[in-house]
């Protein structure tokens, strides 16, 4: 219940922030640009639109996740707005969870609108919906799962470091995670100290690359039901672990 109130307030804060709209406008511009680009290529219009559209949604979504995520908790501590929340019958972990859900909710709404934009562009281009569009929908859902994960570790980082540091770390995590497939194969075949590091990194860093199916989907390939289930489960469990860790740190932390 209280988690819901905190989430709603976090959502309200994000929605009243102008930065959010700037980013969304950029995302729409990118989708529009890919429509224009599509007109000057031959044969790959749909691929181009789907690829660039998904990239735009992911890029701006992750940007929002990181830039709102770093201030989610630390800003409240800095400005001391936590004082009047944590001295109410609210548990600290409830606060963390509420803030997290608030941002995830914001991202869900964003992704929904940006996804609508992409589908409108698709419709404009092909004048019909095809079966393969379902998989584009799944790809958008996976992009949202990426944001769910990014928000969780950004929040964890910001629970023990400054906003700038957290942003840098979160961005690195995201980039490394996008190559995590390569990390996994490296950990399987490397030797010695490299193997140890690659293995640790491969398991600690989230597997973002598994959640990126845009190339396959752009080529009209199907996404298996089992893949959807596994990816969803993974995203939920991984972010759950991150949020719990953030709550654990927050639980013991001094509020300045």
């Amino acid at each position: 219940m209280r988690i819901g109130y905190i989430a709603a307030n976090t959502f309200r804060e994000a929605v009243r922030d102008r930065v959010l709209y700037n980013l969304i406008v950029f995302a729409f511009l990118m989708i529009g640009a890919s429509l224009v680009l599509g007109q000057i290529t031959i044969g790959v219009e749909r691929e181009l639109l789907v690829n660039l559209g998904l990239a735009a949604i992911a890029f701006f979504g992750v940007l929002i996740a990181i830039f709102i995520g770093i201030g989610l908790v630390s800003k409240e501590i800095d400005k001391r707005t936590v004082y009047t929340v944590l001295t109410r019958p609210v548990q600290r972990w409830q606060f963390i969870l509420g803030k997290y859900f608030g941002l995830v909710g914001t991202l869900a709404v964003n992704t929904f609108f940006m996804g609508c934009g992409l589908f409108l562009a698709l419709l404009y281009m092909t004048h019909k919906f095809e079966r393969a569009d379902i998989y584009v929908l799944i790809a958008i859902f996976f992009v949202f799962l990426q944001m769910v994960i990014v928000t969780s570790f950004t929040m964890l980082f910001s629970s023990f470091s400054t906003p700038i540091e957290s942003a840098v770390m979160a961005f690195c995590f995201f980039v490394i995670g996008s190559f995590s497939t390569d990390l996994h194969s490296l950990s399987a075949s490397a030797k010695g100290i490299v193997k140890v590091f690659a293995t640790i990194a491969a398991y600690v860093v989230p597997n973002i690359s598994a959640l990126n199916v845009s190339t396959a989907v752009a080529h009209g390939e199907a996404v298996a039901g089992a893949t959807v289930a596994l990816n969803l489960g993974y995203a939920l469990l991984y972010s759950g672990a991150m949020v719990a860790a953030a709550a654990l740190i927050f639980q013991r932390r001094n509020m300045k």
Binding site: Y203, L230, Y238
Partner: peptide, 18 residues
């Protein structure tokens, strides 16, 4: 943290294999 992370790793293993 422990339980969620372990479960995530198990799923990750499956995802990799697939």
């Amino acid at each position: 943290v422990g339980i969620l992370f372990s479960c995530a790793l198990i799923l990750l293993h499956n995802i990799d294999a697939r």
